[in-house]
Design a protein around this nucleic acid. Structure first.
Lengths: 219, 219
DNA sequence: CTCCGTTTGTTGAAAATTCAACATATTTTC
DNA sequence: GAAAATATGTTGAATTTTCAACAAACGGAG
């Protein structure tokens, strides 16, 4: 587990926990790691939510596919970030989403039951862990507010611009990369890919933005 | 504070905390209560997130209004439920939403800083409080998943049906009341009120459902 | 009971999205 | 480096939503 310390140190779940304690905790938490190639499923919709996931390298997408095959991307989780924690903590029977590797990714899984209920050892740190988990969940909720803020707009153009503004703000620059290709961006914004492409074209002609693949610049 | 014990006992935030302890805690948490008439603002968008709110009676709506005046309703919070906890826990500078009383409502406000950081007394219960808050946040995240599941549908009809299915499931019956009037339902589903009315009319003609005001029956 | 304000339903025209199909880039693979 | 596979852009027709305006139904207040 030692080789993962650099990433885990940046994981908000382990904030304030020293490396040697962290290593011992991972044992108690039933930590195991798995490798997933691009497009492979980490958790399938409908599965029991038993594990809290941490991305050690690569990234995963949280997706939902409806009855007619429309995919909706809820979020992208990068290295050092946590996923599926809400379902695990809320102890839901069936996950309403799938988690799919976005690229070759190493994933750490923690036994949720071990995270929620202290095992008798290391209790001081366990307390910190719970506190961190709470903060993480609060942050996640805000991520969803952001997504709803974007997708509640009524037109493709407004959704796109709202999204790009958020990304520019996050990047701290009007020039930035997004983690989506066109189809994925459409699935995140909940619009048609073709309409999205057309809108990006128009906005470029109008001089509002420039884009080449995943790189965007707001003008 | 005694008169609120019945509601607070049902509040997930205080699960597992005895009444006498609860009363003492409320002091430490800086609890105060306020009354809001229908349509009055509890928290305004842009305000600093200092308080965790609890609905003692009545209900509140979490809403967002965009640049062009389109209102989006994120959720409705009823008696015994908690709101604004995510912003308080994540310590955001500006609330991205407003909280508005849906009917005459009594609201309890807790100082967030007192909830997050133990004050020296009652630590055993404070720990339980943090744990409860974590569970609550996990549940909230799932509520947002539900909303995204609904609003990611592409047509008014699909959004409406997805919403009604969820409500029927929650009610455990195909006949149930919803907490929205037509305009509010439209703002929750992120669609036009007139289009929504038309769609409800069509679905009734088709024999898919019956509705009178806030009461719906799926056939 | 009647008046008045609010909510809900209805309509038609304008605007936007979806859908399917294809052209063109771009990337991957061998 | 060529072929195959994937991603992106483009188009027009059909569908759907939005918008504005008005009619009808409903609910209180007096």
């Amino acid at each position: 587990m030692k080789k993962y310390l650099a990433v885990l140190g940046k994981c908000p779940l382990f904030y304030g926990i020293k490396e040697d304690e962290l290593l011992r905790m991972l044992g108690c938490l039933g930590a195991k790691t798995e490798f997933f190639d691009k497009k492979y499923t980490v958790f399938a919709e409908g599965a029991r939510a038993k594990y809290i996931g941490i991305v050690l390298s690569g990234s995963v997408q949280i997706t939902q596919v409806d009855f007619y095959g429309n995919r909706s991307i809820l979020s992208v989780i990068g290295a050092g970030q946590v996923f599926a924690e809400a379902f695990a903590c809320a102890e839901v029977e069936e996950m309403p989403v799938s988690v799919v590797a976005n690229e070759p990714s190493e994933i750490m899984l923690l036994e949720c039951a071990h995270v929620l209920h202290t095992c008798g050892n290391h209790c001081a740190f366990h307390r910190q862990l719970i506190f961190n988990l709470m903060k993480d969940l609060a942050t996640k909720t805000i991520t969803f507010h952001k997504k709803i803020d974007i997708t509640s707009k009524r037109t493709t153009r407004e959704k796109l611009m709202a999204y790009l503004m958020h990304e520019a703000k996050r990047a701290g620059s009007n020039s930035f990369d997004i983690p989506f290709d066109r189809q994925e961006l459409a699935d995140y914004l909940e619009v048609e890919r073709s309409g999205l492409s057309a809108e990006i074209g128009k906005l470029q002609k109008e001089g509002v933005l420039e884009s080449r693949k995943k790189h965007f610049t707001l003008l």
